[in-house]
């Protein structure tokens, strides 16, 4: 076995093996060089931006929060949470922005709509209405319909500054990458069939929440118009996804908590102080960037005047009053 009589030319064999190894190293280096030279077309992060944010910055945010410690990207990471490579192509910038602002809750249709009100998000998604958005980003539609408003398993990470749009830019970059056909294309087309198969081949599809969980704000309002106005405000705020950022207590989430807010003295970023009365709260819903509360960055909350009527805003304020 181990060449006891020394007749098996062991030293020559060893030298040949080492030469072979050298050749293989050469092959590997050449393949590597060819992979990253400019002839090979692959998108690079400096070519991709979202609004004024660069994918290169987004990658740093992605690493700083150790996103790979739960998620995977190009399939590498922790297998605890979804792969994010094609997330942008699947759910689009409005859904991702709505989600990351308050990750502990699945965005409702109202929340996605309100993100589409932001000009840079609308411009980046290339659509105007929510219907067009759903057609272009089918993942957003499925998620809103099946899970909108429900709790997620992702913790609220309280991103600061521009981190959310930077992450969107990074995901836009990974979506644009050519990953050689991975993840494999899904060839079982019908969603109901797929869900039934996943649940062990039940013939009747058990689609949880197949009725849109996020009923449109105005419909929800109309349904309970005769009822308690504060109760109506509660329903509207839930369907719009307000509660994802505003806690019912005094806790600061993404925005200020609603508890003990009505009638309180609020210090603004410009140093002045106002009383949080009905008029102030309604203005803060419809045009939130008019008065910014101290300690909160501007332009985080979109203006809701396009999708919330003054009556609905009043109902929400009535609901806020009950939280005192």
């Amino acid at each position: 076995m181990s060449c006891p009589d020394g007749s098996c030319f062991e030293p020559q064999k060893r030298i040949r093996a080492l030469i072979m190894l050298g050749l293989m190293m050469l092959v590997f280096i050449m393949l590597s060089a060819f992979s990253f030279v400019s002839q090979h077309k692959q998108v690079t992060p400096d070519q991709v931006s979202f609004d004024k944010h660069q994918a290169t910055d987004g990658k740093r945010v992605f690493q700083a929060y150790n996103c790979m410690g739960c998620h995977t990207v190009v399939g590498n990471g922790a297998y605890f949470a979804p792969d994010l490579t094609k997330e942008y192509a699947n759910a689009g910038p409005a859904w991702i922005t709505a989600f990351l602002g308050a990750a502990a809750t699945w965005p409702t249709e109202g929340a996605v709509k309100s993100m589409l009100l932001m000009p840079h998000i609308a411009a980046d998604s290339g659509v105007k209405t929510i219907e067009e958005y759903y057609a272009k980003y089918p993942g957003a539609k499925e998620r809103v319909e099946r899970r909108g408003g429900k709790p997620t398993y992702m913790p609220n990470l309280l991103f600061n500054g521009d981190e959310i749009p930077q992450l969107v830019a990074f995901m836009k970059y990974t979506s644009a990458m050519d990953t050689e056909g991975w993840p494999p294309e899904v060839k079982v087309k019908d969603l109901d069939k797929r869900i039934a198969l996943a649940q062990g081949g039940h013939s009747a599809p058990l689609r949880s929440g197949s009725k849109p969980a996020a009923a449109d704000a105005s419909t929800a309002g109309a349904a309970t118009a005769g009822g308690d106005i504060a109760e109506r405000g509660k329903t509207i705020s839930a369907s719009l996804g307000c509660v994802a950022c505003h806690a019912p207590g005094t806790t600061k989430l993404v925005g200020p908590g609603w508890g003990k807010l009505h009638g309180a003295q609020v210090k603004l970023a410009d140093g002045s102080t106002v009383t949080a009365d009905d008029a102030y709260l309604i203005e803060s819903i419809l045009k939130p960037n008019e008065k910014i509360v101290e300690g909160f960055p501007p332009s985080v909350m979109p203006p809701y005047e396009a999708i919330v009527s003054p009556d609905d805003a009043k109902a929400i304020v009535e609901y806020i009053k009950t939280l005192n």
Binding site: P82, R143, R146, T152, M154, P184, V186, V188, R194
Partner: peptide, 18 residues
């Protein structure tokens, strides 16, 4: 099977309970 073949989603979706 659930995530790749059926293309269903993870948390809150169908992979997690599966």
């Amino acid at each position: 099977y659930v995530y790749r073949t059926l293309g269903l989603e993870w948390f809150g979706g169908d992979v997690f309970p599966a």
